[in-house]
Write a protein that binds this DNA or RNA. Structure first.
Length: 203
DNA sequence: ACCGCGATGCCCT
DNA sequence: GGGCATCGCGGTA
C-alpha cells in the first residue's frame, strides 16, 4: 500500500484528522511490520485553539516539533506514565497536530497483546481485546511508541501511515476528550471517529 | 454497569 | 509547585 505523502499532512488538522480515518498506522520494529487501522482522531488547531499545546504561539522544548513542518510525529508523556502520539500538520511555523486516539489492530496480534497485557492474543478476555488500543495511551503501549519517536519523520521507513483498504464507513464528529480547561474550545466538534467501530474510546 | 480516585514524572511558571 | 490531549482499580449496585 502507498505511504501517505508530505502533501497529505501539509493541510489543516481538521482535514487531516478526518482523512486519517481508515488509514493504516505502521510501526516497523525489529524487522516486523506492526499495523493498525486508525479509527479515532482529534484535531488540534494551533495558536487559536485553547486546547492545543501550541495555543497562543507557545513555543517550548516539548512543543518544538510542532513548528517544524508537516509529517513528523509529536509524542509526549502525560500523567507521568502514558504517551500520546500525534501527527504534525501544516507548514513550518504553523503548529498544528492530529492526536491518534484509537486504532484497530490488524496483524502481529501477539506483539500487541504482549505489550498491553503480557499474554498472547488467544488468551485475552473479550474486554481485554477491546482494551488493547481504544485510547491514546493504550495505542502507544500496544504499538511500542514512546518519546524516542518524538520528531520521527513519517515519510521514512520506521513509523508511517499507509492508504487503507476501504472507505465504506460513516464518520462521526464529536467533542474532544479531556480538555475541560479549554473554555470555548472544549465544545468544538474536532474529534472524528468511525461510526460503530468497537475500538472508539468514547461514544 | 457506573463512579471516584490515585498513580507518577515531566513540563513550565 | 501546579497541572496534565489517561488509565485501571476498587467500591457500590
Amino acid at each position: 500500500m502507498n505511504k501517505l505523502t508530505r502533501e497529505f499532512y501539509n493541510r489543516d488538522s481538521l482535514i487531516v484528522a478526518k482523512e486519517l480515518l481508515g488509514k493504516v498506522l505502521v510501526h516497523e520494529v525489529n524487522g516486523r511490520k506492526i499495523t493498525a487501522r486508525i479509527v479515532e482522531t482529534e484535531a488540534y488547531m494551533g495558536i487559536h485553539d485553547r486546547a492545543a499545546h501550541s495555543y497562543g504561539g507557545k513555543r517550548t522544548p516539548r512543543v518544538e516539533v510542532m513548528y517544524g513542518g508537516a509529517g513528523v510525529s509529536y509524542v509526549y508523556l502525560i500523567y507521568g506514565m502514558y504517551h500520546c502520539f500525534n501527527i504534525v500538520t501544516r507548514e513550518e511555523g504553523v503548529p498544528q497536530a492530529v492526536l491518534i486516539r484509537a486504532v484497530e489492530p490488524i496483524n502481529e496480534l501477539d506483539f500487541v497483546a504482549e505489550n498491553r497485557f503480557n499474554k498472547t492474543y488467544q488468551n485475552l478476555k473479550k474486554s481485554e481485546i477491546i482494551g488493547l488500543t481504544n485510547g491514546p495511551g493504550k495505542i502507544c503501549n500496544a504499538l511500542a511508541i514512546d518519546k524516542s519517536l518524538n520528531g520521527e519523520d513519517l515519510c521514512g521507513n520506521k513509523l508511517y501511515v499507509e492508504e487503507g483498504e476501504e472507505n465504506g464507513f460513516k464518520t462521526v464528529s464529536a467533542k474532544r476528550v479531556g480538555i475541560d480547561y479549554a473554555e470555548e474550545a472544549k465544545d468544538y466538534l474536532w474529534r472524528y471517529y468511525i461510526q460503530d467501530n468497537k475500538y472508539v474510546s468514547v461514544i
